[in-house]
Structures are given as structure tokens and as C-alpha cells.
Amino acid sequence: MLHQQGVDSVILEGKSRENMEEIVKVGILEKTTIDILREIGISNLMEREDYFHDGNFNSTIKDAASI
């Protein structure tokens, strides 16, 4: 969202990039979050690799940066 508004951003993480890319991240996205991701056009990975259940996406994202 920041990038779409022309705002540069930096992610600070104590672990190496390789370590972060290897870790599978799991989470649940609420409907409002899903709607926002769709509205700004960055829901492709979420919709391609995750599954929908009771109004929420159950997410297992290997590379959050690719969202």
C-alpha cells in the first residue's frame, strides 16, 4: 500500500533474509483485510495459494514479500 502511494519503505528484521524466506508463516485474515488487499490489487498470491473458510482466508504464506 505504501509503494502504491509512492512511499519508500524498509523492513527491519533481526534474522537473515534466507531464514525468513524458509519459514512458513501461518495466519488468519479477517474479511476487512481481505477486502482491502483485493481493493488495492495485491490479493493474487493470497487467492492462489490459500484457502477460504467461513469468511476468512487461512493463510500459509512462504514469502510475505511476494504478496
Rank of each mutant, 00 (worst) to 15 (best):
V7W: 05
R38S: 01
D50I: 09
E18C: 01
L2N: 09
I34A: 07
D54I: 09
S9L: 11
E13Y: 04
R17N: 02
V10I: 08
G6F: 06
T60G: 10
G55F: 08
N19H: 07
E49K: 15
L29F: 06
K31A: 11
K31T: 12
H53A: 04
D35R: 06
L2D: 06
L29P: 06
D54F: 14
H53G: 02
I34M: 07
S16W: 04
K25F: 08
I67G: 00
D63A: 02
I36N: 02
I61F: 12
Y51M: 10
L45A: 12
N56E: 15
M20D: 00
F52K: 04
G55V: 01
D63H: 00
I61N: 09
D35I: 05
S16R: 03
Y51L: 11
M46C: 08
L2I: 10
M46G: 05
V10K: 03
I36P: 00
T32E: 15
S43P: 00
S16P: 00
Y51R: 14
D54R: 11
N58M: 14
R38Q: 00
S43N: 01
M20I: 09
L29H: 04
N58Y: 15
E30F: 11
F57W: 06
H3E: 13
L37P: 03
V10E: 06
G14W: 01
T32P: 02
I67M: 07
T32A: 14
G27Q: 13
E39Q: 04
F57R: 05
I36M: 09
I28R: 11
A65C: 03
L45W: 07
E49G: 00
G6Y: 01
I23H: 10
E39V: 02
G55N: 04
T60H: 12
E21Q: 13
D8A: 12
K31D: 14
I23V: 12
